[in-house]
Simulated assay, not measured.
Amino acid sequence: MRAVVIRSPGGPEVLELRDLPDPEPAFGHVRVRVQLAGVNRADLLQRAGHYPAPPGVPADIPGLEYVGTVDAVGPGVTRFSGGERVYGIVAGGAYAERIVAHEREVVLAPADLTDEAAAAVPEAFVTALDALAVRGRLVPGERVLVHAAGSGVGTAGVQIARALGCFVIGTSRTADKLDRCRELGLDEGIVPSGHVFAAEVLARTGGVGVDVVLDLVGGAYLPETIAAAAPRARVVVVGLTAGASAEVPLGVLLRKRLEVIGTVLRSRPIEEKIEAARLLERTVGPWLARGIVKPVVDRVFPLAEAAEAHRYVASNVSFGKVLLDART
């Protein structure tokens, strides 16, 4: 098979397309012929040497989500027999023509989604739904703040919050992305001045603040996020594009009785990854089928142009998901 390999930690130029042996499915696992894979910020961090793959996962092949067709099944597999169109999340290795995954981590892709649309779903929508509804305990009618609203997870978060009947505020570096997010259900958009946005959030919530925050930025955004939070709010930190550390106003945290919750999907144990697959299957799948939410695809690159795809994502001009096509 062809696969994109990280030659050594570094910039996009360290990504190389190589011919490697096909992986073989172990007991309870299936092999998937990948059609498209999603490009995520985590892939850029892994390439740079800052986010190593967990044990048991290809250490030098990035890629956390895919759509494809089951082309081999291992011993003991009961859910698939071969030929099924599937999608899902893996802890790495999706920048390749074939991957293996536990059969319970693999989900049938909705029949009415194109391959490109399906590839844009798993990581973005599962991450956003898990952060908002599971970790953040979001309930209908609450006020939600989504940082980096124009990103893949951000566009999914805006739609999920809207689907749950919430008032949604988003931040982005550009007004253009916020305008496009309004088509997805965004109520209010804010372009932060530097890292300052709390006063704007309070103004647009009648001085109350927001109940749940999907924070895909971290760093210097966190103190402002805490200032913008309503009493007993839940701040769910998923991304760290603004930095991995922040000065936290502990007095405000205590006075408001806030919860700051960190979460990642990649390093979770298999039991929790199977739960994430069921979230994709039982909640996101029906929403997609009914048109309540929709994947947002920005651009598709050939697998051989993974380095250019990484440069494009790093430029921050993309809106929604960037994909790699393993068929070309």
Results as ranks from 00 to 15, higher is better:
223 P>D: 08
117 A>S: 10
104 R>M: 11
107 V>G: 03
321 K>G: 06
213 V>T: 14
27 F>K: 08
246 A>F: 06
112 D>E: 10
192 P>Q: 05
83 G>C: 07
190 I>T: 10
9 P>R: 10
301 F>K: 06
265 L>R: 01
219 G>N: 04
86 V>L: 04
320 G>M: 05
47 R>F: 15
248 V>Q: 01
132 L>Y: 11
8 S>R: 15
128 A>S: 12
82 G>S: 08
174 T>L: 01
275 E>L: 11
103 E>V: 00
128 A>M: 07
69 T>G: 04
324 L>K: 04
40 N>V: 14
202 L>E: 00
49 G>L: 12
98 R>L: 11
127 T>F: 04
125 F>P: 04
61 I>F: 07
57 V>C: 08
20 L>G: 03
75 P>H: 03
35 Q>L: 13
111 A>I: 05
190 I>S: 09
261 I>D: 00
114 T>S: 15
275 E>G: 04
172 S>M: 07
78 T>F: 14
155 T>C: 12
186 L>N: 08
134 V>F: 13
149 A>N: 12
298 D>W: 04
201 V>C: 07
118 A>Y: 00
289 A>R: 14
27 F>S: 09
129 L>M: 12
302 P>S: 01
130 D>G: 07
237 V>R: 05
246 A>Y: 03
71 D>T: 02
228 A>E: 02
181 C>L: 06
75 P>D: 06
3 A>D: 02
268 R>L: 14
306 A>M: 05
309 A>I: 06
322 V>R: 02
299 R>V: 10
149 A>S: 13
